[in-house]
Structures are given as C-alpha cells and as structure tokens.
Design a protein around this nucleic acid. Structure first.
Lengths: 200, 200
DNA sequence: TTTGTATTTTGACACTGTCAAGATAGCTTG
DNA sequence: CAAGCTATCTTGACAGTGTCAAAATACAAA
C-alpha cells in the first residue's frame, strides 16, 4: 500500500507497468532491463517474473495499455464526416504516436509482432482497433457519406498504412521532420478525402 | 583466400557482412550476436572489432548495402509516367521490402535511427534515396506530366509514408496479410495516381 | 493452529558487448 | 637478407543481461 513497508509489495504488477513505461520513455528500449526495472521499484531481480512470464509478456502488457489509450484517438471528432474532421483525425493520430512514442513502438513494433511470444490479448486488442477504424468507413458508406465504389477494407488498410508510415518516419527521424508536420498531415488528409469522395 | 589456412583471414570484413546478413535472415535480429557471428566465420570473439567499431557499426554497414540494392527499385520501369507504371513501382517496393526484410528492418528501423551511433554514411545514403525519389516527381512536374499545383516534396513524403507503412504492417504481420497484397498495392497506386493527376 | 498458496528472495548459469594486452603475420624499408 | 612497423587476430577479463531452481517469507483459509 504505502511505501514498501512489507515483504509483499501489494500492487507490484501495476507499479512495474508504470515504471517500465517511464523507463522506456526516459531511456528508450535499451534502457529497460528486467533487472534495472526491479531495482528501480526496489525489489529483487526475479520478483517481476511472478507477475509476467517473460520480458515479452511485460512488453505485451504495456502495448495493450497503449491500445487502450489509443482508442480515443480513433474516433473522428465531429458528428459528421468532413475534410476538416479528417484533417483533425490525422493530426490526432500523429500527435498520439509522437507523444506516446514509447507505447507506439511497442504497439506496432516488430519486436513484439515478429516474436513467438506475442500475447493473444494484445493481438486481439490490435485487431480490434483496426476493426473499429474499418467499421467507421463502412458506416459512412451505408449512410451514403462516401461514394459507392469505395472498398472500405482496402481504404482502411491503405490509409492506416499512410498514418503508420508517417508516424514511423517521424518518430525515428528518417524522412519527416517535426517542424513541417502541419502541411504534411493536411496533404495526407486531402489525399484521404479525395479517396473517400472522388469516384473510382 | 581458400579455407582459413592462414592466421590472417584475408577478407574478413566482407565475410562478416555476408554472414551477418544471413544470420539475420535466418534467425532475425535477436539471432545475430557478435560472438555467434565470429564463431560462424571461424574467428575469435573480438576479431570483428578490427573491422567494425561497434555492433551498431556493423549493422549500419549492412543497412548501407541494403540501400545500395534498393536504388534499383526506386526507378519507374517504363520511360513514361503511367498508372500501370506506378502500380508496378508499388509492387516492386513491397516486393523488395518483404523479400529483403532483414535489410529493410535495418534501413528504416528505429534500432539504428534512434541511436547515437548511426553512421553518417548511412544517413547520407538514406537521404540520397529520398532525394532521388523526390527529384523524379519534380522532373515529372517540369515536364508537365503531373499537375501544376502538386507539391512534389509533400507528395513524396506522404506517398513514401504509405509505402513504408504498408511494408512495415506487412513484414510484421500486423494488419496486412501477404495473400491480398495485389489489390492493396493497386489501391495505393490508384491513390497516388489521383494525387499526381487530379487537381488540387 | 495448521496448512496451503501467493509472493519474494538468493544463487546460479549461459549468454551478451567490448576493452586491454599480448601474439602473429606480412609489408616496407634499410 | 634483416629489422622494424603495422594490420590483424587471440586470450583474458568485466559488467551486464534474461531466466531457472530452490529456499524463504507473508498472508488467507481450514
């Protein structure tokens, strides 16, 4: 409860998740080691292993939490579909990615996805996020807000790719620089908008 | 020359680069350790350190080679700009990314880009690749092949983001599955094409 | 109070990247 | 040819890693 008065920590799992996220944010992926984490929360090296099977398991749990926070971003602001709304959405996505980079890296990074140890729970949450995004496009189409020929699935896959690619290139500082993100986001939003409204 | 007859290996650097790439391809990033690599080429643990300052240095060199191979992909096939050409280009990009995933991961992965140790040579090569792509769009515009209002820089940044995002989501198996890449690629190509030809 | 279960600890093992010192080979100059 | 220089490779060492096994500790239920 209070401050490690007892042998039993009380809510070690919660503490580990928080401290791990903090460590990731402060020093990046390589800064987080199980031993350092354990030391930081004042517990022995192997204590975390009673709350997480693996280091991977810990990371999956953090990523899951990332997806939980992410869900709020996925919904367009206004009630009706508009270019302005799409623009805001793109900005929101990138804002989340860049200011929660430590989560975003885990949520979509190859580290977890290419490993055997990825949690089923995480996979589900990730796919849930995409389905949510996809369903939105489907509803728009049913309501006649976007043109009939659009394939919602393909649109969702490609537009998400754009958003994800922008995030990665920005976070990693490869081809996009933070200063010109306004125009770039708008350009992407325009592209999406054309996709949604223009024919074929 | 032949088979480790001599104390001096002869072309250890070359051998290390090749074997490292092979190891990465076979067992992924975590399969490549300096010691294992050294053992694989039949040399002591620290021998590689006379050819590469760091492990990072080694990885940067491999990534560089990836960019060298990548350059061929960046040029459109046909002499003139066409939807068909763009479609082929998108396919080529993804084909490269997925079948050279071990290189692609290093070329654009956060592992190198977010670390201090990234080589100046690698950065240059990466930026060179983008400039090459960008210049292509500029030339199209000068030749009147794409509409006047298009901002080549923004177009290049956003379309590259799409390509990169698709590659990542595909390689990591997040939201895209290999079986439906044909339609997805075409959808992206259509989007690019509209961007290039349609107004505003 | 006893028994059981959940939690935490210490000890150990096989790894990792990389530094410092020494050994070896081959090229360059006398 | 001999002497020396430099590039290359080796052995030894250190601190750090993930994680298993066995023992210790605390709390809950009987």
């Amino acid at each position: 409860m209070s401050k490690k008065l007892s042998y039993h920590h009380g809510n070690l799992r919660r503490t580990l998740l928080d401290e791990a996220a903090l460590l990731l944010r402060e020093e990046g992926e390589q800064g987080l080691s199980m031993r350092r984490l354990a030391a930081r929360v004042g517990v022995s090296r192997t204590a975390p292993y009673h709350h997480f099977k693996d280091k991977q398991d810990l990371l999956c749990a953090i990523a899951e939490e990332g997806f939980r926070r992410f869900l709020g971003v996925l919904t367009l602001d206004g009630p009706d579909l508009s270019l302005k709304g799409v623009r805001q959405f793109v900005r929101n996505y990138l804002e989340f990615a860049v200011s929660n980079a430590e989560y975003y890296d885990l949520m979509f990074g190859s580290h977890l996805w290419k490993s055997e140890g990825i949690t089923e729970a995480l996979k589900e949450r990730a796919h849930g996020s995409f389905r949510f995004y996809l369903d939105q496009a489907r509803v728009w189409q049913e309501q006649g807000l976007v043109h009939k020929q659009l394939d919602p699935l393909r649109y969702s896959q490609v537009s998400w790719s754009t958003l994800h690619g922008m995030s990665r290139l920005l976070i990693d500082g490869v081809y996009l620089d933070p200063n010109s993100m306004g125009p770039i986001c708008d350009h992407a939003a325009n592209m999406f908008w054309r996709e949604l409204t223009a024919g074929n």
